[in-house]
Nucleic acid binder design. Structure first.
Lengths: 85, 85
DNA sequence: GATGATTTGTGCGTATGTATC
DNA sequence: CGATACATACGCACAAATCAT
């Protein structure tokens, strides 16, 4: 799994909310298995740079995926792909 | 001090500006002493939900009370009832 | 054990676009 | 058109938990 620049996948002028676009992009990698269970994803700050959005926007996207049981967050440690996915 | 739903105290059709109505409602709690000095008030987002208005509207109301030395704002921490009140 | 860096949690400050009157 | 209000998003700041040194 590579985490290079993904800013091109985000359309700041699209009707879809930014955090929804980020969540959708990350969700695709999880459900496809490209992101294996238990793997740690980059920090919110790193993801913000990767997607070219604000950290708060990434935070909302992660919160959405957590509510879908696709991600697990541990304060002070990081964010991980959920085990049950 | 309770912070339950206060949307009924705001009249969106009244001639008074919304932020002025919110400021007036909060001011009453401060000058009466129901809100003690140093106490932290709910976040702007929480107050927005409590009053049923936008966060920006609460922000303006707080700015008004700050100018009256009734509230003190600490960026990154929250909003508190001024000590000298 | 202590200290500082990292990471998430959350708050305020502000800008932009849109809707309504 | 201008004023008010709302939603979204970005930026910066502080708190708390964790980890490396």
């Amino acid at each position: 799994m590579t985490w290079e620049d993904r800013s091109g996948r985000i359309d700041h002028a699209a009707p879809l909310l930014l955090w929804s676009q980020v969540a959708g992009d990350m969700r695709a990698d999880i459900v496809s298995g490209r992101l294996a269970s238990g793997v740690r994803v980059p920090s919110e700050l790193a993801l913000a740079e990767i997607y070219g959005v604000a950290r708060v926007t990434v935070h909302r996207a992660i919160a959405e995926l957590v509510s879908e049981n696709l991600l697990t967050v541990v304060r002070g440690r990081g964010t991980f792909v959920a085990l049950s996915s």
